[in-house]
Design a protein around this nucleic acid. Structure first.
Lengths: 141, 141
DNA sequence: TCTACCCTCGCAACCCGGTTGCAAGAGGGT
DNA sequence: ACCCTCTTGCAACCGGGTTGCGAGGGTAGA
């Protein structure tokens, strides 16, 4: 909680109650959260407020957005103090059974060399499949 | 054109005029096409018909879908005769300036090894940045 | 040939995540 | 206390995707 406030101040984001709520939810989440996840986790807060908060967080590099192709963008707290570089991008795993997105933080996204003229800004590396839990419980595709 | 019909028959898809139109458009496209692209390319055909055609094509492995995080799914004709395997997946480049998606067919998507228990079915490897053309014409982000 | 059936297609309506305009509310500085 | 700015909630909107339904057209069997 204190941690949240500190983090916001460090990134130059004015501290408000909603921003603490959103950041706290993201920091306590086991994985990533979507706008919808946050909406249902924070029932008292309006969707558009959460949306604008996330928008601000992304701009200020408090969190980063991951598009896992599920139709809803996921958010995750940035680890480093400064901006995320290409090398910071890590691998994500999307479970096609339970529709959760896992951060494989210790697996950094591989970087291929591009043809002449292409300039890379970011990498989206998503592996889709079945997560260990769903396999264990025999949930079929 | 003949090529289209042959390809559909080979994949066990009943040949209809709309299916030929859609597949032909995709085969002649320089890159990938979205549902919207096809809709405007084939003015006479209804959106839902194109949607259902693409749905069928994906199921029958005539085309595959790529989610480049632009908000609209892109489609691309499958190369091989049989189903696409992990190794077949190639890299895509999304230009944040002109919003086009490029297929880097000769760059196959890198495969990382997953933690115990995760089962990979497909890979989405998207690099976002600025394409050569947009850089040349000095279009800034 | 006639009929019954199934697949395909167009239309319209819907769904849902995301986004925006606007007005009220809260907070900080003077 | 006052003003200005930022923040928030509400409601409406947007666009891609999706679905229900009924009409059209082809096909197989009688």
């Amino acid at each position: 909680m204190e941690n949240c406030i500190e983090r916001l101040e460090k990134k130059g984001v004015r501290v408000t109650s909603i921003r603490i709520l959103v950041l706290n939810a993201l920091m306590n989440a086991s994985g990533t959260m979507s706008l919808g996840d946050l909406e249902s986790a924070l029932e008292t807060v309006d969707k558009s407020s959460i949306f604008r908060t996330l928008e601000l967080f992304v701009k200020k590099h408090v969190v980063h957005a991951i598009d896992d192709g599920s139709g809803s963008v996921k958010y995750e707290v940035c680890e480093g103090e400064d901006e995320c570089t290409l090398a910071d991008m890590h691998t994500h795993f999307y479970c096609e059974s339970c529709h959760r997105t896992f951060c494989l933080k210790d697996i950094s996204a591989p970087i291929v060399s591009l043809p002449q003229g292409f300039q890379a800004n970011s990498i989206n590396y998503i592996i889709k499949g079945i997560c260990p839990e769903c396999r264990k419980y025999g949930v079929s595709f």
